[in-house]
Design a protein around this nucleic acid. Structure first.
Lengths: 239, 239
DNA sequence: CGTCACCTTGATTCCGCTCAAGTGTGGTGG
DNA sequence: CCACCACACTTGAGCGGAATCAAGGTGACG
């Protein structure tokens, strides 16, 4: 298992887009060779975006889905007072843009946290493929439903946990997602700033910083800026 | 416009289930008479549940969608410490159960807040209808996407607002949804207990109670137990 | 008519915010 | 190549908003 300092490293087995967001490992129903072929015909090309660049903005017409091949991307909205609020952290293998179905326009903006590459999936032919192939349709519905469940989890975190529990939950979630993708989950480069983390967790950047320092003092992890090394998983879970 | 004390009043124009969750007013693309016929063939029957009864539980096999015809239903999960956390408040016209796609099992429990009636939509034939009719498929995707957006809004509320702002946001949201459904939005019977409201908003029941009292003292609303009468919308929005 | 669930209000405590100061560190231009 | 600057991060002090603990009050229902 490779150690991960650079999340921009391409995914293991990620030779093609269809093996990213829609790769067999993530698809319970499984796609036949024929279905996979149909799916690949829909995906036009890859696109790279540099750190800080925007993939789509709030209000942009929804006509494209994105699957992250490598790198990491944050989604954010502007809250009432005009301040940015981070809504999601998306890693390689995640699908982006699903919220756009609702109004036909994107409801958040997506910004690359590091140089990243994504698969561009024009929606119209994809929708057609869904109607032709029930496995693809189920996969899409599952992706959307999974998004609902993830948002619910985040809502639960913000509604019930204290600051240190929120930070622990974020670190364990990222760790678990990296592990699930074949990376080492105990050491990773978290590209979010302390302010982004705080915004995502509903706490201030100072509280994030203090909490990480306290975790380090307790021997739960090593935090050197954005580089996180988890030492005691059970300790983190017990927070 | 009818005044609403009893949210269990049947929806205006709600002669049939298809006019609930899937009624033309909510469907930008519109369904032809033929499509509507296909859709109605899928919906088996209505079901009534009494206050406090459970529509589905966490872990139940996902094989059914529900559309609320009348009444109101809360969805909830159990958080880490075993305490219940309210995740959603659903009124007439809302669709329930969409989160079940992800794992094939329901991720939350749905409990009636008052005597209610729902349309029962077996999922398997519904999925088939989606593949045959693109308008129905789009409607389903839109429902799911809308759920994602709603969850995001709730996440934003829990992540950025103070206690009084959260209470105001909840009241304005309910008011707006009732108005959109053809009811008076200024006076309604909120079936959630103070504890449910607090759980939903990530605050304690005491804070909810105090906040409502303060709002009343300011002349923003009248709160007589569960009966809420909003007097000053702009004042509430300005909180 | 007693019980129970729900609601209100008060007193006190404490977690996390705000304000503030100081320390790297990477990027830029002279 | 180095000085400078902007940005991100850390840490401290003090304050305030919401939680907690506690004590009634009210209404529904058997």
């Amino acid at each position: 298992m490779p150690t991960l300092h650079e999340t921009s490293m391409p995914l293991r087995h990620a030779a093609h887009c269809s093996t990213c967001a829609l790769r067999p490992g993530c698809m319970p129903q499984g796609l036949s060779a024929n279905d996979t072929e149909k799916l690949e015909a829909v995906i036009v090309n890859a696109r790279t975006i540099k750190r800080g660049e925007t993939l789509f903005r709030i209000g942009d017409t929804f006509d494209t889905l994105y699957a992250i091949r490598s790198g990491s991307i944050k989604t954010a909205v502007s809250s009432a007072n005009g301040r940015e609020h981070v809504m999601g952290l998306h890693l390689g293998g995640d699908t982006l843009g699903l919220e756009g179905f609702d109004e036909g326009r994107h409801a958040c903006r997506a910004v690359a946290l590091e140089d990243s590459s994504v698969c561009v999936i024009p929606y119209a032919p994809f929708e057609r493929a869904c109607r032709e192939t029930s496995a693809i349709q189920r996969r899409l519905l599952q992706l959307l439903s999974h998004e609902v469940v993830r948002k619910s989890t985040q809502t639960l975190i913000l509604g019930t946990l204290r600051a240190d529990e929120r930070v622990a939950a974020l670190l364990l979630d990222i760790s678990s997602r990296l592990t699930h993708r074949g990376y080492a989950g105990n050491e990773f480069n978290l590209r979010l700033t302390r302010e982004d983390m705080g915004s995502f967790l509903g706490i201030t950047l100072e509280t994030v910083s203090r909490t990480l320092s306290r975790f380090q003092a307790k021997g739960l992890l090593l935090a050197d800026g954005k580089l996180i090394h988890i030492l005691d998983f059970d300790g983190l879970r017990a927070i």
